[in-house]
Write a protein that binds this DNA or RNA. Structure first.
Lengths: 316, 316
DNA sequence: TTACCGGGAGAAATCGATTTCTCTCAACGT
DNA sequence: ACGTTGAGAGAAATCGATTTCTCCCGGTAA
């Protein structure tokens, strides 16, 4: 039976046919659980992302899933919701269910994945680094931020501010660093008074914008570290009657679908999220059939962003 | 061992302690696969949604997951991507892995879930009905559309158009029907020339908008059946120099995060997506421990929408 | 004192697909 | 004609947790 259904060469074709016919007639369905138990693995990957409502992560999910599907794997999507406890729970679920691979956007750099690595389950970190030595897919956030900042300066804005994420987030740190480098590359001196850490949410970004604009030496433009915060910035600017791409310059991270449709369309730093998902899947694949001892050293891949200039960064 | 770890009453506490200590020392981790094989079920629910990039569905996912987590279940999220083949594949995966329940937003009313129901795995349909007799969570789309249309008329718009989804989508049909009822309720005669079926995507909605505006008797306002199409409408209006909430009225389905931040903020029909997820989970729960024969007849729950009036529907 | 009852724990069966083992039969070479 | 080889297929072992079966022993009642 097993030999027939898995198309082993040693089975007489005539008998195999009879088996298949009988199986079809009886409505036989193979039990994936029993199969996994015997094979010590499931044809399932887990993708544990930190925010299912963030289009950036859902794009990663699509990339990973399209690849997985082509390779005969299914993807279990889990939402850790930026909550370390939930993340730990899902890592445990992944371990218990013996998925064959895990892609994770870790909440903290120190997230504990040892139960998985101990069992030889390959783990790939995406978007954020992990202290543990695993394959990692990152974005050249700093370079993207630098390019965005230089762009603002190049089109004529003189005092770009930076609204970045929480200090606990690697991506926020990188984007701030890139902003600073952009200023330096254009012979401007970075000023701490032009930098605000928000929490990647719209509300706090709106507050930060207000603060900046009410400061002694207000900025004339903004580099914003993600698209949700850009919404907050836009709101605050509008409430003051300021138009982006005219009175104020704006570039934000993330090429969310709606960014092309706001008034004015947003200039954005596009992260190759879909490709990140595909790449993470390929890294997983490259370790799947391979015994622990033969596995290559962990690799870190850094993908380039692309600056998409629309209208919000135009200089009036 | 099993008795200890599952806290059976019949185990001597002292022995149980020794077992637990030993288990901890050896780094014992229970094999969820073997457990599922024996118990003939996994503590996993599958949620098969049709578009992971749609905030409406991710909100359903959050609701379902929060409930599941409280009940000790994990949620496997699968993305059918409006593709019947993918949907069928994931239904099969769910069957093979013997998940204990499935929540599905079916691509077609005729989607075949018989393999699951035959095994006694409860299925709940969300957002869209299924011909098969299962618990279903729907939105009172028609009522929401009617309310939105009446609102447009009540604030002074005289010729609202309707841009709805494809004719194959139940939700699109419902929303169109609601639009018609709204007109009739205010003594207006629905005109086919003011109705367009787009495909729930921005591009086609932009085209439809252009068509309507270029018609002989153009509309002065729009009821749009989802938020992504609203993006397309906004784009087309802006390219013609028309401002919503001033020159043109607009109400759209879906309270997406960005709708509050566009210029002007969009008046929307808010669907209780999170609650739908919770409700679907509760329907699943109510059937889980119950033998097939004792199960209640399938129930259909219809949730109310809420009209959120912002500025895009204001009459100039 | 003997018979019975019941708690507790070790041993064995169970779940279903896969893999390994073993046996049969036929073909081939010497 | 006999021994060897190998293909093919049925039987049995395997994966690991749970559940059932069995047995032992202490306590209680007759």
């Amino acid at each position: 039976m097993s030999r027939t259904l898995n198309n082993q060469a040693t089975v007489d074709e005539q008998l195999a046919d009879r088996v298949r016919v009988a199986a079809a007639e009886l409505g036989y369905r193979r039990n994936g659980i029993a199969r996994s138990l015997r094979l010590q693995r499931a044809d399932v990957w887990a993708l544990i992302i930190s925010d299912i409502a963030n289009p950036f992560f859902t794009a990663i999910a699509r990339g990973l899933e399209d690849l997985a599907q082509r390779q005969g794997f299914s993807v279990v999507l889990c939402n850790s919701d930026e909550d370390p406890a939930k993340e730990a729970n899902y890592l445990e679920v992944a371990e218990r269910e013996q998925v064959s691979g895990v892609v994770l956007s870790p909440n903290r750099i120190g997230s504990d994945i040892s139960p998985l690595t101990r069992l030889g389950v390959p783990v790939v970190a995406v978007d954020r680094p992990l202290r543990a030595p695993v394959d990692t897919v990152l974005v050249r956030s700093a370079a993207g931020a630098q390019e965005a900042t230089e762009h603002l300066l190049d089109v004529g804005w003189r005092r770009p501010a930076c609204i970045t994420g929480p200090e606990s987030a690697q991506t926020a740190i990188q984007r701030l660093a890139g902003y600073r480098r952009g200023l330096l590359a254009r012979k401007r001196r970075p000023a701490a008074s032009l930098v605000r850490h928000a929490d990647y949410r719209a509300d706090r970004a709106a507050l930060a914008t207000a603060e900046l604009l009410d400061g002694r030496n207000p900025p004339d433009s903004f580099f914003v570290a993600n698209s949700e915060m850009a919404l907050g910035v836009l709101q605050e600017l509008r409430s003051r009657g300021l138009t982006v791409g005219e009175d104020v310059g704006l570039v934000a991270f993330d090429n969310a679908p709606w960014t092309a449709f706001t008034d004015r369309p947003l200039s954005v730093v596009d992260q190759p999220a879909y490709e990140m998902g595909v790449l993470a899947g390929n890294l997983l694949l490259s370790r799947l059939g391979v015994p622990l001892s033969d596995r290559p050293a962990p690799r870190v891949r850094r993908l380039r962003t692309e600056l998409i200039v629309r209208e919000s960064s135009l200089h009036g």
